[in-house]
Design a binder for these strands. Sequence first.
DNA 1: CTGAAAGCGCTTACAG
DNA 2: CTGAAAGCGCTTACAG
Lengths: 362, 362
Amino acid sequence: MQNKVPTIKEIAKIANVSAMTVSRALNNNPRVREKTRKKIQTIAKQLGYRPNRIARSLVSKRSQLISLIVADIGNQYFSELARGIEDKARENGYNVIFCSTDNDSETLKTYVRLMMEVGVDGFILAAVRLKEPIVEELADQHFPVVLVNRELKEKKANSVVIDNHAGAYLVVEHLIKCGYEKIGIITGAFNLSTGIERYEGYRKALGDHGITFYEDFISQGPFTTEHGCKAATKMLSGKNRPEAIFAASDKIALGVMDAAGKLGLYIPEDLALVGFDDTEFSSNAKINLTTVSQKKYEMGALGVQILLDLINGQDHGSVNNIVLAPELIIRKSCGCQLPRNKRPINNTAIVTPDTRGNTVLR
Amino acid sequence: MQNKVPTIKEIAKIANVSAMTVSRALNNNPRVREKTRKKIQTIAKQLGYRPNRIARSLVSKRSQLISLIVADIGNQYFSELARGIEDKARENGYNVIFCSTDNDSETLKTYVRLMMEVGVDGFILAAVRLKEPIVEELADQHFPVVLVNRELKEKKANSVVIDNHAGAYLVVEHLIKCGYEKIGIITGAFNLSTGIERYEGYRKALGDHGITFYEDFISQGPFTTEHGCKAATKMLSGKNRPEAIFAASDKIALGVMDAAGKLGLYIPEDLALVGFDDTEFSSNAKINLTTVSQKKYEMGALGVQILLDLINGQDHGSVNNIVLAPELIIRKSCGCQLPRNKRPINNTAIVTPDTRGNTVLR
DNA sequence: CTGAAAGCGCTTACAG
DNA sequence: CTGAAAGCGCTTACAG
């Protein structure tokens, strides 16, 4: 029982002009007499005319739709990114369809194909692995696509990412300057650019500062709280224990906190902790997590800007790989504000709670 | 330079049949000879045929698109909800376009109209105020729409919400049972069903238990960390101070934690705290927030289920208002695990840190 | 400045 | 089981 919206044909009949003229008038094409345009627009408004974008798309070959493919829209990281993408897209008259792949390559492929059927004008992909044949295919065909957050090993597609290597380097160097030498890392999967590059930055920083590297101090797995908790529990239960842990995402850091709590270790007194992403909760008084800022909103917006240039034919042929600078946000969890003699110096130091109430993380 | 995808016409020519037969074969319409179908499908596969959904939509009047309108996709609450919506929609062949309104009614109206132009088959609205003329209009015209999370004052549209009144009642009753009498509330805006109903549940619980109600113990504003921090700072700085605060969202609770930290108050020793939503971070070891479970994912999925029924004409005429049961998740922040004599009994108790290291929230 | 024709890629409805 | 016709609501391209 919906109020049927009128078509340009019906407006044309009432206005006593052709459908063509109605189309021109409503699209503010200058090749219509002012008076005619006014008359048509008045009628259109009166009838509650709304253009049918599907019909328009069929002929114009433009849907004004872009596809955002993330690992999980329910994940804070991707949802903050999504907001930047949405705002920039809508500012330019585009709407966004989202898909969550849970990091599965097959699913990614399925969704890319599905979105092609839907007729999207381009893709923002935030959940690629180092190797994604379907994405290379898109890039080879010069279909508009921009990678955000993660990139391919073969840099065939346009991308906007943070310098993950440099970010990790900043973190580890800072920990070293704070006096820590036994530094563990819990990172994301090595088949993701973020997972592997943050690991490489960690290794480089250790090497440059002549710090011993322990195999036991590395864990690779999903960027999740569960992985963080499990890996930290294992790492901290061994004989040779890290004094500091670099969690390659804030979510992993949350898991490390859970593990430390269960083991009776205080952060930062017994264990320094640094995350990555600067997700909203990390600034909370109780969490107070030192982390690396990601500028997710801006990254998403910039990705859309580049995508729109591609869609509008500003394809200069060359591939655009933008790398944003990371920024270290120092908070309490890395313990750098602790007096030097309070910092963990060996792996057996467990200060009893009542001797240092003031420095407990709040 | 994109590989042009073939149309049914081209397939028809190659297969030596009509476009109609191709259409039937590819849609697995039984009125095609098995042999013909096989032949057509082989050719289609070979040419990499992909149906053009835009063309299909234009004639079928179905876009297989639904619109999700939230306050902010970057907000964890809405993004978790979005994931439930996405999964259920895709399971049924639908894709989702999202829009963030920042709770602005005009923006909501603009987006609803925009999405009608795009041709969505229905709406999931998670960001309505108590009064939204545009939504009533949709409902009156029987356009498929389902409210989720929040509902209208006039229950004209289908909805899936949690029982906010009961949830708040549970919280406050629990605090009372724990021995608290001076209980403050920091809630969302009173023009949102969630904001007002949680407040009313709070008032009811106080009344039923004969607890004095103080005007100073109420704050109403946005469901944000900033509001939580500001309101808590004010509430806790007064002479007459609450022993417990019911934050009507976990985000507000994060703000209360920040405020407490700055004022040197420990949670739960100096101040009991309960949130609402059971957002992911609330279970973290450092946060450990007692809260009300929302089942966001399920709520979203159920909303889509109802929407699809509406789209497919299962409109029984009557309005469906589903109310889900809330569940209280008791964690450390409400202090109910503290021995009775450790609980705050007056508003001047500030225990010094070193006397109770063991009970500090970790 | 205005319009008639053709068509975007499909499906519905009717014939056979 | 197969097909010719018509049309979804617009816009592009060509005439005048």
